[in-house]
Amino acid sequence: MIRAQQPFQFATASYLTCICNQRATRLAELSKGLGECSEASIFYHTFHSLRRHHFLTEGFSDDFAQWIMAGCNLPELAEQLAALDLREYANLEDLRKDLRSLVADYCQAFPERAQQKAFEPFYFSEAIEVSLPLGLEAQTLEDFGKILETLSNASFHYHFVTSRLRLHLRSNDFSLWFSTGLGLDDLAQRANRIDIYTNTLEAACQQLLHLVSQEIGS
């Protein structure tokens, strides 16, 4: 049984949603807003949206794509935005640039559509994070697995999804600990490949649990 020098410390996060005074009633305004809104707003409408709607694995998981589809009826652009994989982003500015460039390019190509009034406004909002330790820690993979079995969606999302922004890596807290704490690089990579888009958070957590069990059994 491998013991990590540094235990994995489990934490969780609660979020407060702050509604900004900024809103968009047409695509051109969304494009402008994407350039001006805070990073907390980009986070809310992408990473946090994934958590709020994780159980809807068939729709668009980011709010921008959802509004472009439902509010503006522009499915081709909505699909392009939804195809941006949050796992590829280690900071919000890069994500903002890509979102904005997709929308701005579309507005330039179809100026009439960009000015068409949407069915409903888009309200820019921000996520305010309050993180807190859970007082649970794992020194071995076996301990880790036991705690993972009882982990909340909030905690799983915090370690597996939003951790990318804290680490500024295309990885997550779990994989980082598997690799640097336990020397299990292969497990780290396999964990990092779990698809958070086509799985609910519970299903993603179950997949991770399965990988951990396999590793313990091997």
Partner: peptide, 10 residues
Amino acid sequence: TPEIQELHAL
């Protein structure tokens, strides 16, 4: 249980 535990933690 996890949700209730987190309420207690907060």
